[in-house]
Design a protein around this nucleic acid. Structure first.
Lengths: 121, 121
DNA sequence: GTTATTAAGTTACTTTTGGTAAGTCAAAGG
DNA sequence: CCTTTGACTTACCAAAAGTAACTTAATAAC
């Protein structure tokens, strides 16, 4: 008798894999969270708020989120330049799912840390 | 006047960052999702179900999830070896948050793909 | 009684992803 | 002129992940 497991990746078209892969990078979820909490922000504001993201990776992360239609990018033709970012409607619709993840993290971090310590002992 | 943005990373102790960083790898979320959907699974079953994860990365992902207390690993001293994995209670408590992410992905993949195509045109 | 098979990994090596620091651009201020 | 400013690039380097071969020990096949 053969078990029949639910698969998520056999086809590259799998929508769940297709989207989750995007969040499997280092910064996407955090950028969405920060933009969702703070509303409209400029590039350097996001950069300082996150603190340890490089300019390079913040740029590519924002461009990817823009391509996916989750973040809107508005350039003001001034010098020095001004660029504002905010979540789109689609991006906002993702927020509750991310904040629920974040609050789970907040509630369970103690247990996780304890577990990590035991494991490494 | 100075804006006061909510920060998530200034301190390395930030619990949200601390946990989200773990999910910011390539396979953790997917492994939890697969185990949550299918219950107890052996190493090769998980491997085949996901399809495109390398043995090496599946090993380190499972070990990390075990260290965090999200996954339980049971070794049967047989030859050839048998190792079974399943979510812990803590891991199961995370499932709803991940499935809600997955169903959001499922519902919005079309819009995201359309957006990507427009962006690259 | 060698040889192949099997599950769950390692290991050595290569590729991809991300980090670091310096450079760019064009106008305004000194 | 020289500096400053904001949002990036670019060249170079380090870390994470992929690939393919190897390991282990008992049973099965030859």
């Amino acid at each position: 008798m053969e078990k029949n497991f639910k698969k998520f990746s056999t086809s590259p078209q799998c929508p769940i894999r297709n989207v989750l892969d995007r969040f499997g990078d280092k910064w996407s979820i955090l950028v969405i969270l920060v933009l969702g909490e703070n509303g409209t922000m400029r590039f350097n504001e996001i950069n300082k708020t996150i603190g340890d993201v490089s300019q390079k990776m913040l740029t590519v992360t924002l461009r990817t989120l823009e391509a996916d239609g989750l973040v809107a990018r508005q350039v003001f033709p001034e010098i020095p330049p001004r660029v504002e970012y905010q979540l789109t409607h689609l991006g906002m619709s993702l927020m509750p799912h991310i904040t629920s993840l974040a609050s789970w993290a907040d509630q369970n971090i103690h247990q996780i840390k304890t577990s990590r310590e035991k494991f490494n002992a």
